[in-house]
């Protein structure tokens, strides 16, 4: 019984120290102090106008052919013009992303919560998780297509395989952040293992879980688009290959722009979730 006790150590096991990665310090938004004056706002607008306008001007001035780089105005125009045609494909990609991410995230979270409770199991599983994290799941897509056909299934599997391990390793890092003093506090009131998990370990892991979900979602988006480029006749990835093969560069870049916006939206979504639910760590 006494063997299981650890020496009470307060300084080494404190949470939120040692510069751990948290949602907020990954953020470009939190690195600054926020827009505080009209002058700052004007400066931000001015720089954006200068960059976009400058590109537009330079491309037109040097008569750069459209198949090399279309000017920004034509990309934006194409985005609106082609939107009715692109929109269904955006829908397909979102379905793949959402389904695959949900499956991957749930499995990743459950696995992280379970294996961190059993350090021995974690040691056995760790190498395989590492393989899943480092192997580009895109490589498996041709194989998955052979087995599951050209529909949603192979892409959803690929997204789940890309997102799941990312969620899992980050969540596991969170669950491993044991603060012995806080667990002792809960135990001193007679808390059960389950209560300790839900009231101490889970809230403590939450910032890292959110980081994992965000990275997982972005990896999922990349994988979904990549998987659509490999084969099958739908999705934003398919639009990219299709437009580029037809040298419709404004349309091509319109899709790229759409993907950028999608990625940013994912980021912003998790940033605000983090701000609301995990700001205690900042």
């Amino acid at each position: 019984m006494s063997q299981s006790d650890a020496i009470p150590e307060f300084s080494k096991s404190r949470s939120g120290e040692g510069g751990e990665v948290s949602l907020t310090n990954l953020s470009a938004f939190s690195s600054g102090t926020g827009i505080r004056s009209g002058a700052e706002f004007l400066a931000i607008i001015a720089v954006a106008v200068a960059i976009i306008g400058g590109t537009e001007l330079a491309l037109r001035l040097f008569e750069v052919p459209q198949y090399i780089m279309p000017p920004p105005s034509e990309i934006v125009w194409a985005l609106f013009d082609e939107f009715p045609l692109i929109a269904p494909h955006l829908g397909y990609t979102l379905i793949e992303l959402f389904s695959g991410f949900t499956i991957g995230a749930v499995v990743g979270l459950v696995l992280a919560a379970v294996i961190t409770q059993f350090p021995f199991a974690e040691k056995i599983i760790a190498p395989y998780i590492l393989i899943l994290v480092t192997t580009p799941m895109l490589a498996l897509v041709p194989l998955l297509i052979l087995r599951f056909g050209f529909g949603y299934t192979p892409r959803i599997i690929a997204v789940a395989l890309a997102a799941g391990p990312m969620v899992m390793i980050n969540a596991a890092t969170g669950f491993r952040r044991v603060d012995s003093a806080k667990i002792a506090l809960a135990r001193s009131y007679g808390a059960s293992t389950l209560q300790i998990f839900w009231k101490i370990r889970a809230p403590m892991a939450l910032p890292m879980i959110l980081v994992g979900l965000m990275i997982g979602a972005i990896f999922g988006l990349l994988t979904a688009v990549g998987a659509e480029m490999v084969g099958g006749g739908f999705g934003l990835g398919n639009r990219l290959t299709s437009y580029s093969s037809m040298i419709q560069m404004p349309q091509f870049f319109a899709v790229v722009l759409m993907l950028s916006i999608l990625g940013i939206l994912i980021y912003v979504l998790f940033f605000f979730i983090g701000k609301k639910w995990a700001s205690w760590e900042a």
Binding site: F10, K182, A186, Y189, P203, A278, W280, E281
Partner: peptide
């Protein structure tokens, strides 16, 4: 239950406000 502990460096739960921290033992029990 008859023994109360005050830990080093307060040991409050940072994700709970003060009321919720004081309520924590009662939630557990």
């Amino acid at each position: 239950p008859d023994i109360g502990i005050v830990f080093q460096e307060a040991n409050l739960l940072p994700w709970r406000n003060l009321d919720a921290n004081i309520n924590f033992p009662f939630e557990i029990k």
